[in-house]
Design a protein around this nucleic acid. Structure first.
Lengths: 343, 343
DNA sequence: GAAAAAACTTTACGCGCGTAAATTTTTGAG
DNA sequence: CTCAAAAATTTACGCGCGTAAAGTTTTTTC
């Protein structure tokens, strides 16, 4: 039916019988035109599949509908899950999410921020790498682009921070483990990539002292984001040294625990809370795979959904308030203990 | 030092002492201007951090530097890994990757293609959902945007297809399993989301007949992309029915196998090739997690890197040839058998 | 060192749309 | 039906840049 080709809004306006400025108004907000006008435009929209040129639109609008989402490592199912949730919320709000992964390196993280700057996003949801991050570059970015941090906090950067309460994670696991058996030692990386790891160690030590036990921290070496393999190798090394072979082990995060459990299995050690078991293992994060480890992993779960929702909400508030909030709020959500078979 | 604020290329040209058209040439290709000119521009670039407005650029250029990448399910580490590889190659080529996940639903897949259409990408790398995909909408998209399919083929769509050779996966696992023990039965979903699953079943049946054994296909029910849980529940159901408790099981993919192994563990069944074991389990994909299952999973690995490289290469050829290739090539890469402890 | 080639400058137009101002038409309450 | 308010139309400009054409300067070639 389209006799002519629609090249731009001018063409589309003429076939719909409405003037171009009104059509422009419609695309900015369909409710801003009279219902009858809206009908006529949508009827034309039905016959011709015209859509405004996004580049012309963004050039002239004061603000784009782009929302940047940056995560440190998208291949980690934890981040892909939270990114997915955030993406969905952003789309529902009528914005366009732009998802970028830093692939574990500071260079890519900075590249991502550069990329985002060039697309002039209305707002950015940013989970930094943590220790490896280029703080100066990030600070500059946050000053120029309305940014909300999530998952990993960087002191004072961004207009708000939303994450999980590491103390809540550790307090629950430590309390449970102490109550139900031998007190746990803490299993972590020597040089953790993420600031949450440090908070968890500190919380572990405090919780143990509160419970009246001596904290024992076991650090394993390893670089990069291959946490499972680091956990596996570290566990083997510990077992070889005659450590950790009985009692209770609390891993800093699930990915380390996955590696730890693999090592235990490889050595024929039985993990679980039964009489016949050699040791108990628990962890934090409720990683999507933690349900399928052998045995299934007792862990403390993030409130994914709450963190995602609050982050998105804060960001839109930030946008509406013109890019700056009165005070930088830090919101932490408590964890939920998930008892499975490993401890 | 910047006394004035650089608002656009005009301003930047004047502070660099070069005319705007030449500066424009420079940004399109720094080598297209005289070395001395380039130096002067880059000196100015050093003092002022001007960057061309991406929207104005894309509005006026005949082609953007955007490359769409669509995967069916980014929370699946298999897809996040291949997406990461592709992303890197695209960036190296000087283009801007736009990564979109269909989150397992056809609606989102179509939305993603719509989104891509609006950003006028130079090319698209597209891994469709498969069975659930809206073939008609995809066909229309492929006609309008230079598209290369990967991972999952859709007959005749896109200008090329690059994937893995399912027969190669299954032939190697079946041959190995038959040679080293009891012939495997095949464990899969009743209604697999992905066309590769059908090819694997067919290849299994043919391979078994070639080896002189009766093929046995065990189908489990379940919907969606929670393959691990489907595998776990399906395995329990089979074990409850007294099936699969001894012998050899070949899973259609690693995620099903991960669930299967969890179920076996939960029932105290020993998996592996030792005398004391109850059954052997093997699978296909070399999922990032398959190294850490208990026991570690014997599987057939994709040539991730080859598929990614070839896909990107084909897409750039497609772009250079103006959007159409003479013939639609289908390239399949063979698998590599990875022997671990489960079989 | 002169001529040819290459690179640059100047000038100008157009891309598709947001948006403002002035004017005309439509709507809805009384 | 009247009239004010609301909505649409007409007209016009500008966003920042790609790009073409014509003229000027610089570099290369022999």
């Amino acid at each position: 039916m389209p006799g002519e080709t629609i090249r731009n809004m001018e063409d589309f306006a003429s076939v719909s019988g409405i003037s171009r400025p009104t059509v422009s108004k419609y695309f900015n907000n369909p409710d801003s035109v009279r219902p009858k006008t809206r009908e006529r435009i949508e009827a034309a929209l039905d016959r011709y599949d015209y859509r405004p040129n996004i580049y012309a639109v963004n050039q002239n609008r004061q603000q784009t509908k782009n929302i940047g989402i940056v995560v440190p490592f998208l291949s980690d199912p934890f981040f892909s899950e939270i990114a997915r949730t955030i993406e969905t919320l952003v789309i529902e709000a009528g914005f366009r999410p732009i998802l970028l992964s830093s692939h574990g390196t500071s260079e890519q993280e900075i590249d991502n921020l550069e990329t985002l700057r060039s697309v002039k996003p209305a707002g950015v949801l940013f989970a930094p790498l943590g220790r490896a991050s280029d703080k100066l570059a990030i600070e500059t970015f946050c000053k120029n682009v309305p940014t909300v941090l999530f998952d990993s906090n960087l002191d004072g950067m961004g207009e708000a921070f939303i994450g999980s309460d590491n103390a809540s994670f550790v307090n629950q696991t430590v309390e449970y483990l102490c109550r139900s058996g031998t007190p746990p030692c803490f299993f972590e990386m020597r040089t953790p990539a993420n600031p949450n790891a440090n908070k968890r160690r500190t919380a572990y030590i405090e919780a143990m002292e509160r419970e009246g036990h001596d904290p024992v921290v076991h650090k394993v070496s390893g670089q990069g984001w291959g946490f499972e393999e680091i956990g596996r190798a570290g566990a083997h090394a510990a077992f070889d040294a005659g450590e950790l072979t009985n009692g209770t082990v609390l891993c800093s995060n699930d990915r380390l625990a996955i590696g730890f459990l693999a090592a235990a299995y490889e050595r024929g050690l039985r993990v679980g809370r039964g009489e016949e078991c050699d040791l108990r293992v628990a962890s934090h994060d409720d990683h999507p795979f933690s349900r399928f480890t052998c045995p299934s992993l007792t862990t403390a779960a993030h409130d994914y959904s709450a963190v995602a929702k609050h982050s998105v909400k804060s960001m839109f508030e930030l946008i509406e308030s013109g890019g700056h909030l009165n005070a930088r709020e830090e919101t932490l959500y408590p964890a939920r203990l998930i008892l499975r078979d490993s401890a």
